[in-house]
């Protein structure tokens, strides 16, 4: 089996994220009851809630550099989303370490963190605040975000009335507008229509040219092959393969296809 073949060291690009033997552990209780009452009852009955540990990611040593588009592939439950959360800084590794830049733009699901009761415009301001942008930055950027999302009059309507494609448009426009150093995307391009898919693809490419790093999770192997410069194959929380997207995808097809 091919173990993370080192990338060709032709042009050493600046490393943006570095994982060192990182692991993430979840703990499950088989009769998990998140109440005080439940826990007291368990104490009383002498039954100790049998907790089971589960390593969603184990011993990950990976580096991500500027200008890369890295696809994360792997079967369901292989740890792709957990890795994305780790890169986004939503969780910290239970063991090992991670170095990551402060400003990471993460779309952990296609629709981001939009608040259904707010309009597109209001969501834009909430997004800016949640991501620590300056107040003035969003004021200045709003017209171009509105234009890119192409939502028309819906930009001022509560987001809960949007279709999933429209939500994805808004979320992607927000996530990419401020030229993040790192963009993390979970199955984004599967939602928008073809027109918007193309548009987002071009924007992604532009980010890369400017030296950003893009990490995409996708089950769409064709997309990974065509859009990514590199792919990482995860299975059971471990890296099975890491290298040129075409090779990794071919290997994936052979193993799981």
């Amino acid at each position: 089996m091919k173990q993370s073949a080192a990338k060709p060291a032709a042009k050493p690009a600046e490393k943006l994220i570095r994982l060192e033997a990182a692991g993430v552990k979840y703990r499950f209780m088989t009769d998990r009851d998140l109440t005080l009452r439940g826990r007291l009852a368990r104490l009383g009955s002498g039954r100790n809630g049998t907790s089971r540990e589960f390593w969603a990611l184990k011993g990950l040593t990976l580096e991500f550099s500027r200008g890369e588009v890295v696809g994360l592939a792997g079967p369901n439950g292989s740890g792709k989303s957990t890795l994305l959360r780790l890169l986004a800084g939503v969780i910290d590794p239970s063991e090992g370490s991670i170095e990551r830049p402060v400003r990471v733009s993460a779309l952990l699901e296609p629709t981001g963190v939009l608040n259904g009761n707010l309009s597109g415009r209001q969501n834009a301001f909430l997004y800016a605040a949640l991501n620590g942008l300056e107040r003035g930055e969003m004021d200045a950027a709003l017209p171009r975000i509105e234009e890119f999302a192409e939502l028309g009059a819906f930009f001022d309507v509560a987001v809960r009335t949007y279709s999933s494609g429209m939500l994805a448009r808004l979320a992607f426009s927000l996530a990419t507008h401020f030229k993040p150093e790192v963009l993390l995307v979970d199955e984004l391009l599967s939602v928008g229509d073809e027109h918007f898919q193309k548009k987002s693809y071009f924007r992604m490419m532009k980010l890369i040219e400017k030296g950003s790093l893009v990490v995409v999770v996708s089950h769409h192997l064709g997309f990974l092959e065509s859009a990514c410069s590199r792919a990482v194959l995860l299975a059971g929380g471990e890296v099975m393969d890491d290298g040129p997207a075409a090779r990794v995808v071919a290997g994936y097809r052979k193993r799981f296809g």
Partner: peptide
């Protein structure tokens, strides 16, 4: 202290609701 904007934005959203 650094997330004053976030604080105000969340407060506005909640007051609105």
């Amino acid at each position: 202290a650094a997330s004053r904007d976030l604080f105000i934005e969340l407060l506005k959203v909640q007051m609105d609701q």
